[in-house]
Amino acid sequence: MSVLIAIPARYASTRYPGKPLVGLRGAGGKSKSLIQRSWEAAISVNGVDQVVVATDDERIANAARAFGAEVAMTSTDCANGTERCAETLSNLGRDFDVIVNLQGDAPLTPAWFVEDLIAGLRENPDADVATPVLRTDGRALNGFLADRRAGRVGGTTAVFGTDNNALYFSKEVIPYTGQTFADTDETPVFHHVGVYAYRPDALRAYATWPAGPLENLEGLEQLRFLERGVPMLCVEVEARGRQFWELNNPEDVPRIEAMMQDMGLD
């Protein structure tokens, strides 16, 4: 299958303006911007035909071109990354079997998360949209709970049925467990990894629909598919010893840098 990875990135983030250009220091002491680290994660994925940074901001575009990325300029009207991916697909003027949205705030995304996601669509021809989910250990779950107690929105959690189709996504920690977990314990809570794979017709349709009430309440773009009755396949991925976290708030910078130190990632 032909595959495009688009990395949507905007400067005017409500929670963290200028986030794509924030520096993250790796284990070797070198600082690279969030958007560069996300691009490096994307180009490490096998079986991809094209990788582009999709942005409406010249500061991000110039920074991306400086480290060698291809840039697709989009309008300021895109409400979220999925809409930006849809516009990017249209602007590129060619079609792909699969378009992957690797959001520009996920620099710790291992290549196999995306490879397994693409394989999930390949193995499920009836699925039009797919996204990875990662079972949390106690350390990750306790981090989610600590963020919520502090009034911060951290990662997103997912629940899905026996057919692996999503039932719901939330910035609250779902399902409720009422249990205490040690850092190394396996838990029943799944971290939604902020990556999506779409077939082109589903992506184009998304851009024509208005946001629904659940999307507006949660601020989660993927809920537009569920509110329209479009199944979203949840593909469980394995950590393989890697820690994973997105950069949502300024407080996440030292957390991600500490993870890179622990994992020896430059």
Rank of each mutant, 00 (worst) to 15 (best):
G178P: 06
F144H: 15
G28W: 02
F113W: 04
H192W: 15
R65K: 15
N91H: 07
P110F: 09
W245N: 10
E227P: 05
G154F: 00
V45A: 05
L223N: 10
R122Y: 02
R152M: 07
A72S: 14
S31L: 03
G151M: 09
L203R: 06
A72L: 05
Y196S: 10
G26E: 11
A106I: 08
D57N: 15
P107K: 03
F181G: 02
R199N: 11
P250L: 13
T180Y: 14
A72C: 14
L167N: 08
L24R: 01
T156E: 03
A146Y: 01
H192L: 12
A111D: 02
V195D: 01
P231E: 13
Q50R: 15
G151T: 10
T76I: 01
L167I: 12
A61N: 02
R15L: 14
D95N: 13
L167Y: 14
A41T: 03
A64N: 03
E218P: 06
Q103G: 04
Q222M: 07
G143T: 06
E115P: 09
D262H: 06
V230T: 15
K32R: 15
R37H: 10
L233D: 09
P188Q: 09
L167C: 06
G151K: 10
G104Q: 02
L203A: 05
P110D: 06
R84L: 10
A61P: 05
C85S: 14
P231R: 12
T208F: 04
S31T: 15
G93A: 07
N80G: 08
P8K: 01
R242W: 05
A202L: 06
E172S: 13
R242F: 11
T74M: 03
D262R: 13
A239C: 09
A12S: 06
V51P: 01
A130C: 12
S13N: 13
P132T: 06
P107G: 09
I99Q: 02
Y16V: 00
W209D: 07
V22Y: 00
A205I: 01
A258R: 13
R255P: 02
P254F: 10
S90K: 10
G93E: 09
G138N: 11
V52I: 11
G47M: 04
A197L: 13
V51I: 12
R255H: 12
L247C: 12
Y16M: 02
P175G: 07
I35N: 01
N124P: 02
R10V: 11
R152S: 02
Q36V: 05
A9N: 00
V235I: 14
A42M: 04
Q103A: 01
T180F: 13
E123R: 11
A9Y: 00
E70Q: 14
S90G: 04
